[in-house]
């Protein structure tokens, strides 16, 4: 039995930490209404890395906002250890797609921000922040301002800022979307390393197939609008995992398998988008 499959066995034996149960969200009313998320259900077990993947417009970001408590009005349940969440929950740490460091604070002050809010003594919060800055590989950049860092480094600052308050669940919305492929793969390594070191329960929202396979234990594939769960794929690649895994046959097999599902959805999305453009052009 591989290390990964034994970890999966342990995970399956434990209770889910995060349960998404029949979540439904519709924007607008009447004929123009758009169903963004249609009765989506899945769960995430402690220490597990789950990705939600789907084409643009499948409701991934809506789901992210619902789980993060930024969208209140929806039906169904989002439960963290059997508690239904309404609004942002202290157990969930969010990393956003857009660059979200505070430009007026240094790297150290950015990362220490959540601890400052909690009233943690200065020396302790600097120590804890320094630990997470080191963890994301930014040791030596503590006094730098965000404008002095690259996009990838800034995103790592955001991740450290989220991790410093010790969230039970790390929720990330396409955190590497704005980065080039090579930086993305290397940051993937960093995320895998952190996740394994902290046994961090993680839910990643992404549209990037290789990223999802590289990082995840399970992948939830969504349909194009309305966003439903099409399939859940278990990724049985060995851990500890690095970006070297992308050259393995098994990796290619998973990518091909999920792409077969996604291709149809992405085509529908593209078709829909083109029809909308044509409609707009006709209306002048």
């Amino acid at each position: 039995m591989t290390e990964a499959s034994s970890a999966a066995t342990v995970a399956s034996a434990t209770q889910p930490q995060l349960v998404i149960d029949n979540v439904f969200k519709q924007f607008g009313e009447g004929p123009g209404a758009v169903i963004a998320v249609d009765n989506v259900s899945f769960d995430v077990k402690p220490g597990e890395f789950v990705s939600v993947i789907g084409p643009s417009g499948c409701g991934k970001s809506t789901l992210f906002n619902i789980i993060g408590g930024l969208l209140d009005e929806y039906s169904g349940n989002v439960m963290i250890e059997r508690e239904r969440i309404a609004g942002p929950h202290k157990a969930v740490g969010m990393v956003f797609q857009e660059e979200s460091t505070f430009p007026w604070r240094s790297v150290m002050d950015n990362v220490a921000f959540p601890l400052e809010l909690q009233g943690v003594a200065k020396s302790e919060r600097l120590d804890r922040a320094a630990h997470f800055i080191d963890l994301v590989g930014l040791k030596g950049f503590e006094k730098r301002m965000p404008f002095e860092l690259s996009g990838g480094m800034r995103q790592r600052v955001s991740i450290a800022r989220t991790l410093v308050s010790g969230p039970q669940i790390l929720l990330m919305d396409e955190p590497f979307a704005a980065l080039d492929e090579q930086t993305r793969l290397l940051l993937g390594d960093k995320i895998t390393q952190i996740q394994q070191e902290l046994h961090q329960t993680t839910l990643l929202i992404t549209h990037n197939l290789t990223e999802a396979v590289q990082l995840s234990d399970r992948i939830v594939v969504m349909t194009y609008r309305p966003g439903k769960v099409k399939r859940v794929v278990n990724i049985d690649l060995p851990r500890p995992r690095t970006s070297d895994v992308v050259s393995s046959d098994a990796f290619g097999h998973y990518v091909a398998e999920i792409w077969a599902d996604l291709r149809e959805e992405a085509s529908r999305g593209m078709q829909d988008s083109e029809n909308m453009q044509r409609g707009r052009a006709r209306r002048g």
Partner: peptide, 14 residues
């Protein structure tokens, strides 16, 4: 102010 910064604040329950 960029909405993402406000969302960071909301996620930290400010």
């Amino acid at each position: 102010v960029r909405p993402v910064l406000i969302n960071v604040g909301k996620s930290l329950k400010l």
